[in-house]
Simulated scan of single mutants.
Amino acid sequence: MAEENKTIAVTDDEGNEHLLDILFTFDLEQTGHSYMVLTSAGEQQDEEEEEEEEEIEVYAFRYEEKDGEDAEQALYPIESDEEWDMVEEMIETLSAEDQI
């Protein structure tokens, strides 16, 4: 797992740009892919909010790093239920460890 503390811009299917904070990335041996977990920019909880146990909405994508000047990352949707189950389990495990 790698913690990023970085904000990226993601364009949706309708051409709208959204700023998202990278919570963490991880690899799954079972799928051979890397995954990125994001939340809307500015929605990460600080320590006082964590005590209130508010949930934040997170998004997960499969990603591949592309070589280039800015080392872009290409995000892809997670399509199969089996892959979602594995990703969700990893998110829950990492979230419990980091108390996102």
Results as ranks from 00 to 15, higher is better:
Ile8Asp: 02
Leu38Lys: 05
Thr93Cys: 05
Glu14Tyr: 05
Ile100Ala: 01
Ala60Tyr: 05
Asp27Cys: 01
Glu97Leu: 03
Gly32His: 07
His33Ile: 01
Glu3Pro: 00
Lys66Ala: 13
Pro77Ile: 04
Met86Asn: 03
Tyr59Ser: 12
Arg62Trp: 03
Leu23His: 02
Glu50Gln: 13
Glu29Lys: 15
His18Ser: 08
Ala60Pro: 00
Val37Trp: 02
Glu82Arg: 10
Ile78Val: 15
Gln45Lys: 14
Thr25Asn: 03
His18Gln: 10
Tyr59Ala: 07
Asp12Arg: 06
Asn5Val: 07
Glu49Trp: 08
Glu49Ser: 07
Tyr35Leu: 02
Glu92Phe: 04
His18Arg: 02
Asp27His: 15
Glu14Val: 11
Glu53Cys: 03
Lys66Ile: 12
Leu38Gly: 01
Tyr63Pro: 06
Thr39Tyr: 02
Trp84His: 14
Lys6Cys: 08
Asp67Glu: 15
Gln44Phe: 01
Glu55Thr: 07
Glu53Asn: 12
Glu57Tyr: 01
Phe24Lys: 08
Gln99His: 12
Tyr59Val: 05
Thr39Pro: 03
Tyr76Lys: 11
Ile56Leu: 13
Glu52Thr: 08
Glu92Cys: 07
Glu92Leu: 15
Glu4Pro: 00
Thr93Gln: 10
Lys6Phe: 06
Asp81Leu: 13
Gln73Trp: 00
Ala74Trp: 03
Gln99Cys: 04
Pro77Val: 06
Glu50His: 08
Glu69Gly: 15
Trp84Pro: 00
Glu29Ala: 10
Thr93Leu: 10
Lys6Gln: 14
Ala41Thr: 07
Glu82Ile: 05
Glu52His: 12
Glu64Tyr: 03
Glu88Val: 07
Thr7Arg: 08
Ala71Leu: 13
Tyr76Gln: 12
Glu29Arg: 11
Gly68Glu: 05
Ile8Thr: 05
Asp81His: 09
Leu38Ile: 05
Tyr76His: 11
Tyr59Met: 14
Pro77His: 04
Tyr35Thr: 02
Glu83Lys: 05
Ala9His: 10
Glu53Tyr: 06
Glu89Gly: 02
Gly42Leu: 08
Trp84Gly: 00
Glu52Asn: 07
Val10Phe: 08
Val37Tyr: 00
Ile56Ser: 04
Asp13Asn: 14
Phe26Ile: 09
Glu29Pro: 03
Glu14Met: 09
Glu17Cys: 04
Asp46Trp: 03
Asp67Pro: 02
Glu49Asn: 06
Arg62Lys: 15
Leu23Cys: 09
Gln44Gly: 03
Met1Pro: 10
Gln99Met: 06
Val87His: 03
Glu49Thr: 04
Gln30Cys: 00
Phe24Trp: 12
Trp84Glu: 15
Asp70Phe: 12
Ile8Leu: 13
Glu79Gln: 10
Gly32Phe: 03
Val87Thr: 01
Asp12Val: 06
Thr11Asn: 08
Met90Tyr: 00
Ala2Lys: 14
Glu43Ala: 13
Ile100Gln: 06
Asn5Cys: 08
Ala71Arg: 13
Tyr35Lys: 06
Thr7Ser: 12
Glu3Leu: 15
Leu94Tyr: 07
Glu57Trp: 03
Phe24Asn: 09
Asp21Ala: 10
Glu92His: 07
Gly15Asp: 12
Glu3Thr: 06
Glu89Lys: 13
Glu48Ser: 11
Tyr59Lys: 10
Val37Ala: 05
Glu48Pro: 00
